[in-house]
């Protein structure tokens, strides 16, 4: 588990709307290299990042976080990303913005099946990922 709070990144402060919302993400992926690389980019972009390597760890960490965007891989040991989201949503009375990531060709179907409004197919461009996270944070709809 890694939990770090970083100072304002290059993008923070650009947009009043962004700073008004908590730019905090819970990143869940069992691939250590992938998770570390994405976490670093998100921190550079001003996100506060908490990481977990599987669903169980993510559920435990989520209890201590106020508001966050869940960014979760689908195919992981133990709970899959859809199950992680369903369990978190069941516990939380408030809105839980979430983005599903997967290398599966059926990313849109998997996202719809588990109730995700946002998804990114692996491999993705970082611009796509950052845009999708911002959209999820603001409660926007895909394609906006």
């Amino acid at each position: 588990m890694t939990r770090e709070r970083s100072g304002p990144g290059p993008s923070s402060g650009r947009d009043a709307e962004r700073t008004a919302l908590q730019r905090r993400v819970l990143l869940v992926d069992d691939d250590d290299d992938f998770r570390a690389s994405v976490a670093e980019v998100l921190r550079d972009e001003g996100w506060e990042v908490t990481t977990a390597h599987d669903g169980e760890e993510a559920l435990a960490l989520a209890r201590a976080l106020d508001e966050f965007v869940l960014l979760v891989d689908y195919r992981m040991p133990g709970l899959n990303g859809g199950e992680v989201f369903e369990q978190m949503r069941g516990r939380s009375p408030s809105r839980l913005p979430a983005v599903l990531m997967t290398a599966s060709k059926h990313v849109a179907d998997l996202a719809a099946h588990h109730g995700f409004r946002h998804h990114v197919g692996k491999p993705f461009s970082l611009d796509d990922l950052l845009g999708t996270l911002e959209l999820a944070l603001r409660g926007g709809e895909p394609g906006e």
């Binding site: 691939d31 290299d33 992938f34 980019v41 550079d44 195919r75 491999p123 970082l126």
Partner: peptide, 23 residues
């Protein structure tokens, strides 16, 4: 088919690194 997703995951990690370097 599932294994193919695992193979592509390796590539996804490479691409994030390359883009991170370019940034």
């Amino acid at each position: 088919a599932k294994l193919r997703d695992d193979v592509v995951q390796t590539y996804a990690a490479a691409r994030v690194r390359l883009e991170a370097a370019a940034r």
